[in-house]
């Protein structure tokens, strides 16, 4: 029974992933055959690799659904209930300080999920490869993960306090613009790309659960309207942390240079 259920789930995920992949395969094949008319160099290896990607995504999603999503959702729910907050006076409505565990949880889960995000792995690997090791894949991923942690903390804080989203978002945009104008040009593309990739397979479902749980349990919030917006913060903050990381790296290198030349 259990096994059958699991199998049915598995097939479902496979079909979902296939329907996501089919247009991509169709476009690549279509252009390859009709426009480029240039054979792929290793057709066998490419097909095998594509199957590996497909199997990988299906197993990855299936495992997350089995192990992490239920637990993550349960925890998000438990941590946002009034019981958990442990107020001295249960009738008093909780203030934003009472949700400190939620902020900490948001920060930790954001950091951890960003490190496991396959898209980010792909971009970081590529960046290390083409920069000849100047950009370290792990360093980039940690910078991004710190960004997601900050973003989610601010996002949950916004849901708890009910500050209108656009104030914070516009504030973030202005910060990003200022950082961009003074950042080393070489990192800008990578920084912006890493903002977009942080939120896919792992982060979105967990974060959505957290946002909806919070919005449902905090008095005066509407899950439909306030549940959104966490992803936006999780995309914006990595841009800032990567730009800052790059500036820091350049600054440290300059300092080291000037030290070695003066001594």
């Amino acid at each position: 029974m259990n096994v059958m259920n699991g199998l049915a789930h598995f097939v479902n995920t496979l079909i979902e992933t296939l329907s996501d992949v089919t247009p991509i395969v169709a476009i690549i094949l279509g252009f390859q055959v009709l426009v480029l008319r240039y054979p792929l160099p290793h057709p066998g290896r490419t097909v095998l690799g594509f199957c590996n990607v497909l199997i990988g995504i299906v197993f990855f999603l299936e495992g997350l659904k089995l192990a992490l999503f239920p637990l993550g959702e349960l925890m998000a729910k438990q941590m946002t209930t009034v019981d958990f907050l442990g107020l001295a006076n249960p009738l008093q409505s909780p203030s934003w300080q009472d949700y400190y565990w939620v902020y900490l949880f948001a920060a930790c889960i954001g950091f951890a999920t960003a490190l496991a995000e396959p898209s980010l792995l792909a971009v970081a690997t590529k960046a290390e490869e083409i920069s000849g090791g100047t950009i370290s894949a792990l360093g980039l991923r940690i910078a991004v993960a710190i960004g997601v942690a900050f973003g989610l903390t601010l996002g949950t804080f916004r849901i708890v306090t009910g500050i209108p989203m656009y104030y914070l978002i516009i504030g973030c945009y202005i910060t990003v613009i200022v950082l961009t104008l003074s950042a080393p040009k070489i990192i800008i593309g990578l920084a912006y790309d890493s903002g977009g990739v942080t939120t896919s397979t792992v982060t979105v479902p967990l974060v959505t659960a957290l946002g909806l749980g919070l919005a449902a349990n905090v008095p005066g919030r509407d899950p439909l309207v306030d549940g959104f917006g966490l992803i936006a913060f999780a995309c914006l903050f990595p841009i800032m942390t990567v730009l800052t990381y790059a500036r820091l790296a350049v600054w440290l290198a300059q300092k080291r240079n000037s030290n070695s030349s003066s001594s």
Binding site: G49, I55, G56, L64, L66, A67, A116, A122
Partner: peptide, 26 residues
């Protein structure tokens, strides 16, 4: 399910990274 799920996730990520280098990037 936590253990089985985690094993699946590790396998999934491994296959994904393998296929990435074999096909998507090329």
């Amino acid at each position: 399910s936590l253990i089985v799920g985690m094993v699946c996730v590790v396998m999934g990520l491994t296959f994904f990274m393998l296929g990435l280098e074999q096909s998507l990037f090329p």
